[in-house]
Computed example of a mutant assay.
Amino acid sequence: MSSLNDVRFFATAPHECSYLDGQEATTLFADPDIKIEQDDYQQLTLIGFRRSGRYFYRPQCDGCQACISVRIPVNTFRWSRRFKRTLKRTADVTCEWKLPYIDDEIYVLYSHYINARHREGDMYPPSAEQFRTFLMIEGPNTRFACYRDGQGKLIAVSVVDVLPDHGLSAVYTFFEPQLDHLSLGQMAILRQIQAAQARGMDYLYLGYWIRDCAKMNYKTDYAPLEMLIGRQWARFERQS
């Protein structure tokens, strides 16, 4: 594919919103039968699209603009005491970046996570086919960041898309739910910030933030963020 001008876009029928009670949602998505190249993926990201499996999508709801794309400008990120404590607590956790794969070890971790954290969501119950459809269908330059404890046990995996010379896009993270004391979800974001910095990149994209959705509140912990308001990225400082 040579240009986004060649891509057809479709909209779903209105459906129940997954994030706000009593709201209807409509999703705009790129034709899944057209291959999206790296440069085009980057351009889609800049205008608020996300990837899930082979689908590139963006909310497009009548009368609602609650879903706001957010990204961390990694070179101005503030390493608070809380974040430093998390990194210290997980100092013995190693990370290896790999091409997407599935085996018994990784699938058991994924199923434990879904069963413990997302029994009310669309991904429950977990299945190997669901894993492949959601996480194994690669976007351009997709990697699994695999985290292991000091004994070599796999405890977390981040699915990350690498945008050329620009940034990382955090697609999904799953981890051992019994290790809450390690704050593995937070650790994964912090490690991705470090990875983007090490690659000389500017941003880590975190997907959508919704002010009135409690499970998305954590994203503002990483302020200063940049938020896509209309067609412009604007700086956001968390209020103390």
Rank of each mutant, 00 (worst) to 15 (best):
D6I: 11
F9W: 10
H15T: 05
Y19S: 05
D21F: 10
G22W: 07
Q23C: 13
E24I: 01
A25R: 02
L28W: 07
F29N: 01
D33K: 12
K35I: 12
I36F: 11
D40F: 13
Q43M: 14
Q43I: 13
L44W: 13
T45L: 07
I47D: 06
S52I: 04
R54G: 13
R54H: 12
R58D: 01
P59M: 02
Q60P: 00
C64M: 06
P73F: 04
R81Y: 04
K84Q: 13
R85N: 11
L87Y: 12
K88H: 11
K88R: 15
D92C: 06
V93A: 08
W97G: 02
K98N: 10
L99P: 02
I102A: 15
Y107I: 01
Y107T: 03
A116L: 01
R119A: 15
R119P: 08
P126Q: 01
A128P: 00
T133G: 05
L135M: 12
L135Y: 04
L135R: 04
I137A: 14
I137L: 13
I137D: 10
N141W: 08
R143E: 09
F144R: 02
Y147P: 06
Y147R: 05
L154S: 09
S158I: 02
D165Y: 09
D165L: 03
G167R: 04
S169K: 04
T173P: 03
F175K: 06
E176W: 07
P177Y: 09
Q178T: 15
L184P: 11
M187R: 13
Q192M: 10
A195Q: 15
A195I: 01
A198N: 05
G200A: 04
M201R: 07
D202K: 15
Y208F: 14
W209V: 03
Y218H: 10
Y218T: 08
K219T: 03
D221W: 09
L225H: 08
I229N: 05
Q232P: 00
F236D: 04
F236N: 05
R238G: 00
S240G: 05
